[in-house]
């Protein structure tokens, strides 16, 4: 049965039609697609999970959900155009079709957020896999105590989801943004995302942190939280390493004893800290 499951859901792409596409910032597009089949199965997806998106005739890449699939099969992805497949996916016009396999991965530990202070640290495009969980925290379906988002981007023009940030703020999420560099007329923060942490008091014993961004940024952020007294098992990082099959067969995303595609992509810091400092992995 399990093998059959793989053949129908995990190995063979579902067809999805692009309904809308817009450039969120320079080089980063948000596509909204509608699945033709299996909408009910996709609607069980969790924040932090991902799909393998297939550009027909070009190839396949893993992309996290930036909104979760609805019961009607609508789902959106935020794609940075960096290689051949992402270029093909972002070139598709409305009405075009893509392939979708998934949902894959474990997702964020939503069940651990109840009653806790949730600290979300995002860097660059890393805010995309966090978007569904921020929506979840912002719009009342969560029992978390309070939610704080620290978001770092390269420059002011590279800040994603500016409208969502306002919605999140209005819904009570404490949002702090910073950029690595800015021109003279920028009135916001400039500095690395971890510099924002010092300005906000943390209840370290009751904090759960979710981090996504470039791996070096996640390492620094996790260490900063460790220094602030947050325990490693309460700090979760979403890793990304060369995922190809997404079902733990090909081994391309092996990270020490784990396969990021099926054991992750979200890992507690205590599970992976030592391996993050191994350059050869």
């Amino acid at each position: 049965m399990k093998q059959g499951h793989h053949q129908t859901h995990d190995s063979i792409p579902a067809i999805a039609t692009v309904k809308t596409k817009r450039w969120e910032i320079e080089g980063v597009a948000i596509i909204d697609v509608k699945l033709s089949t299996n909408q009910r199965a996709w609607a069980q997806s969790k924040p932090g999970q991902f799909a393998m998106l297939y550009g027909f005739g070009v190839g396949e890449i893993p992309i996290s959900f930036s909104t979760l699939p609805s019961a009607e099969g609508r789902v959106s992805f935020t794609i940075r155009r960096t290689g051949a497949v992402s270029a093909a996916l972002t070139r598709i016009k409305c009405g075009g079709v893509i392939g979708m396999r998934g949902p894959f991965g474990n997702g964020w530990p939503i069940e651990q957020l109840a009653g806790r202070d949730v600290v979300i640290i995002a860097g660059g495009l890393g805010v995309a896999p966090l978007r569904p969980v921020i929506d979840y925290l912002a719009f009342g379906r969560s029992d978390a105590n309070r939610a704080t988002l620290f978001y770092g981007a390269r420059e002011p023009a590279a800040i994603l989801y500016t409208k969502d940030i306002e919605r999140w703020r209005n819904a009570g999420v404490d949002v702090h943004t910073t950029v690595d560099t800015a021109s003279h007329d920028w009135r916001g923060n400039v500095g690395v995302v971890t510099s924002l942490l010092s300005g906000v008091p943390l209840d370290s014993e009751n904090t759960v942190a979710l981090i996504c961004g470039p791996e070096i940024m996640m390492r620094y952020a996790a260490e900063a939280l460790k220094d602030a007294g947050v325990s490693d098992e309460d700090v979760w990082l979403s890793l990304e390493r060369n995922m190809k099959c997404a079902i733990g067969f090909c081994g391309h995303c092996q990270f020490g004893p784990a396969f990021i595609c099926k054991d992750g992509p979200a890992f507690a810091y205590d599970q992976i800290r030592s391996n993050l400092f191994v350059r050869e992995l």
């Binding site: 450039w23 320079e26 080089g27 597009a29 940075r80 960096t82 690595d180 961004g213 070096i216 940024m217």
Partner: peptide, 15 residues
């Protein structure tokens, strides 16, 4: 970290 430009080079695409 800022010097490493960890969020990537400016995209020349999506122009």
């Amino acid at each position: 970290l800022q010097m490493m430009d960890i969020y990537g080079a400016p995209p020349t695409i999506g122009s």
